[in-house]
Design a protein around this nucleic acid. Structure first.
Lengths: 336, 336
DNA sequence: TGTTAGCACTCCCTGTATATGAGTGCTAAA
DNA sequence: TTTAGCACTCATATACAGGGAGTGCTAACA
């Protein structure tokens, strides 16, 4: 376990490194009044901290930089997230929600705000269709073999998809199916099992379950949206064109991105460096939180930046914004 | 006017510079057998070409690089675009269209192919809603004041938008409007004037024209899609992080992008360097062409790369692909 | 008159040597 | 246990020389 003084030194090193992006020397730390011992003492302590794995030295006789373990300790035991007051929305530049007209827009607006405030990259996941509830289904034939199926959910999102029409199915029968679905399944979760049983009720003589499942299974329903991509170029660690490139490549892989920012538990998730399994972000940190409505997760909002990230600010902001957005979405839904 | 020999020298310089990205010297040019004179002669000619503005010298005693005027002359009078045979689709790695299920996907697939083939960035514009024809309108109320309007076009695209419901309008009346629109306006162009006259037919006692116009005016209907963003990092001119950054920033400005690649005339458009008004692409070239169906423009496909671009290859490819895609879309629409 | 060989000159690039400075680890004294 | 002092390390900056690619000019040649 670390002594109180070691904690304070670790704290000072990390705070300084977050601000300067340069190795921190003993003299710099000794100048801060929270520590109050001489540079030589700090050198000894820093050597200990390095031995324990909380600090690293880029080369002999350079200052120290925090290791992944150091950041982890800092996040878990040292940092107190900045706390935003309820009334500070305007100060942050939050839009008047009245003018926004969909769940998606509200989430994106928040993402833009976040990236502007932090100068890191913001990633948001729109709602999964599985996590939403059916309001209205429509199937519009394009030809005798193809149709477009459209689903509107209770949150006002529209999913759309092209489907083939099974051989023996007439246009009239399709209308019947749509009618039955709209009458009986409204308000149900869009799970893969939603359509089970509808087929039998029609007594068509052939099985439609598989087709109906496809009607409701919207691919690409997970909308990944990123914002502030170029802002991250301000960070000195991304001056390296190859790192930059790896990151941009990553952005095109929707699946990976989703996996990266998806929180595995409630609350705020901080993943530091190699804790993110993907190699191209092994020196990045990702902080994310879920957006909840009625206890259900409707979206995720996350920030990606260098491990040398302003955790205090970002954790505080994400905490505040995720709750704020949940709140406002809730009110917006009731006001519809 | 340039002499035949000057043309050949300009040609050689540009071809070499396109391949090497480095200033081309007189010795290098004299080695090519198409020219066949000594280095000294070429030095004289190159000095003339520079005086006329076709070549530039980055610094005294360096080789020459083409100027914008040089590229323009090259494109207009020298280069013969590579001609792809009809049967070379497979060679290019063109997908079997059967598995693609929307106009959008077909265009995007082509964009990906283009950027893979050229190592430049590809930008496509999806169809404007104004240029499409109505197949089906639906309005789904979300509450007493809000609804979602959905338009499906003849090309199978779905546009969707949230609208407010005017005060005195009942749900029944909305259904009537939708019915009238679907009966009378099918196959019409989605122009802003589409809905004119519908209002009177209903004899509601108040004017709905403005609202109806909004129903059909889909914002963000111009889908901008980019592909191969990171590929452009292979080009030496984008090693500079600031240029890179300017380009990425540009990508987020949909309006500007549209303006940049929108062709002003039929056929293939080549815009070199400062001919693109936007500063961040003042050392890029953009080659674009429209995708036509039934004589109407349904999309645009363009390539953005350094002015030092392989014009021969790109012009040839865009020419081939834009016609090929138009063709295949046409067949695909008939087969629906 | 047009073409070419020869030559001095320019300017970039690279590698080497040197100086500077921030920071360390160790030792010994307080 | 803390601190001052000192020798040592290593990255970075600066200066400088040599090499090389390429030019412009001149004079000779066909």
């Amino acid at each position: 376990m670390l002594t109180e003084r070691q904690k304070r030194i670790l704290w000072a090193v990390i705070d300084d490194y977050i601000a300067s992006a340069e190795p921190v020397g003993s003299r710099t730390v000794s100048k801060k009044k929270e520590v109050g011992v001489s540079a030589a003492t700090i050198r000894n302590e820093m050597a200990d901290l390095e031995e324990m794995g909380y600090l690293e030295q880029p080369y002999t006789s350079a200052g120290r930089i925090p290791s992944q373990k150091g950041y982890r300790f800092y996040v878990d035991h040292i940092v107190t997230p900045y706390f935003w007051q309820q009334g500070q929305s305007e100060e942050l530049g939050l839009q008047d929600w009245g003018s926004l007209d969909s769940l998606e827009q509200i989430i994106r607006q928040t993402a833009t705000l976040l990236s502007k405030q932090t100068n890191y990259m913001t990633i948001t996941l729109g709602p999964t269709s599985f996590e939403e509830r059916l309001r209205y289904l429509q199937v519009v034939p394009l030809s005798s073999r193809h149709a477009i199926s459209i689903i509107i959910t209770e949150t006002g999102r529209v999913y759309q998809q092209q489907v083939e029409i099974p051989q023996h199915l007439t246009e009239l029968q399709i209308q019947q199916i749509v009618q039955i679905v709209n009458e009986r399944l409204q308000g149900q979760l869009l799970s893969p099992f939603l359509a089970q049983g509808v087929s039998q009720q029609l007594e068509l003589g052939f099985d439609l379950d598989e087709w109906l499942t496809r009607l409701f299974h919207m691919e690409n329903s997970e909308q990944v949206y990123t914002s502030g991509t170029t802002r991250i170029l301000d960070q000195p660690e991304f001056q390296d064109i190859n790192k930059m490139r790896a990151l941009l490549d990553l952005l095109e892989e929707t699946q990976t991105i989703m996996q990266l920012i998806q929180p595995t538990s409630d609350g705020i998730q901080v993943r530091i460096g190699k804790e993110n399994v993907v190699a191209s972000v092994s020196d990045c940190s990702i902080i994310s939180a879920s957006i909840m409505i009625h206890g259900e997760q409707v979206g995720t909002i996350g920030v990606l930046g260098p491990t040398r990230m302003n955790y205090r600010k970002v954790i505080g902001l994400i905490d505040y914004l995720s709750r704020d957005v949940s709140d406002k979405l809730h009110r917006w839904l009731r006001g519809l």
